[in-house]
């Protein structure tokens, strides 16, 4: 199992637990917000909460991946799934948007043509992608989950990315192919970037990453691309110390 698929499955399990707790609290709206987890190297660095809006979340991911120099990103969101190979309403192959269209039709849902699901997709800079889809049904305040369906682009037997595609995958693989802000800053001309390089040389790499992470979160917030965010760090690490110094809190 690759690191990417492992992380995607972990986030999917965490979302299942969140979903159970959220539905048990009897909210008016049972859907979860969109969640984005970012990883750099071997470490998780941040988690973002975004509105239920695919395109705003993609904008946030685009900026966060470049800003934080993330090597992997995992996005969790509510979606629709089906066990039908073709669209039962048309008898033809599924087209983009048709599952959510049927999802708004109570008759189609009652017939089991489509079913609500948690979708968790992971992407890395090596163009690998993973999707975990977990169908579910809500009865009162309880959620009953199906077995997860896992599709890996880096698994020869379950190739998905090359055959599947789609807008979100295209957008994320494109975002993951772009250089990070730190990489771009190394070659940009002008006094601002010269000063930046001098300051980065004065501070250690861990401090530079911490400040670019903070700058990215500040920008995401000011541009209203996220609802909230958490910076992550290993217990006892220099990064944890910097988070405590800057924000004065530690939720470990």
């Amino acid at each position: 199992m690759s690191v990417l698929s492992d992380r995607t499955k972990q986030v999917a399990e965490a979302m299942k637990e969140m979903k159970k707790e959220w539905v048990a609290s009897e909210p008016e709206q049972t859907d979860l917000a969109m969640l984005v987890h970012l990883f750099r190297g071997t470490e998780p660095i941040a988690a973002l909460q975004c509105r239920l809006d695919r395109d705003i979340t993609l904008q946030a991911c685009h900026l966060a991946v470049a800003g934080m120099a993330a090597d992997q990103v995992v996005i969790g969101f509510e979606s629709w799934t089906t066990s039908h190979m073709t669209n039962p309403a048309t008898g033809k192959e599924w087209e983009h948007g048709q599952m959510s269209e049927l999802g708004s039709d109570p008759e189609a849902v009652a017939k089991g043509w489509v079913k609500e699901c948690l979708s968790v997709t992971g992407y890395d800079r090596k163009k690998n992608s993973t999707i975990v889809s977990i169908g579910y049904q809500i009865t009162g305040t309880e959620v009953v989950f199906d077995e997860p369906v896992v599709m890996l682009s880096d698994d020869e037997e379950e190739s998905w990315a090359n055959a599947g595609g789609g807008y979100m995958q295209d957008a994320m693989l494109h975002a993951m192919s772009l250089p990070s802000v730190l990489e771009q800053a190394q070659t940009m001309e002008g006094p601002k970037f010269e000063l930046m390089r001098d300051l980065m040389g004065t501070l250690g790499p861990e401090a530079v990453f911490f400040h670019i992470d903070c700058a990215t979160l500040r920008t995401l917030g000011e541009r209203e691309l996220i609802l909230g965010a958490v910076l992550l760090a290993e217990v006892g690490s220099e990064r944890e110390r910097m988070i405590e110094e800057r924000f004065g809190v530690n939720l470990n």
Partner: peptide, 18 residues
């Protein structure tokens, strides 16, 4: 490709740290 706002914040945070 690059957010000017992000660059401004980053530069300010670096300067404050130094």
């Amino acid at each position: 490709p690059m957010s000017p706002l992000l660059i401004e914040h980053f530069l300010r945070f670096l300067s404050e740290a130094v």
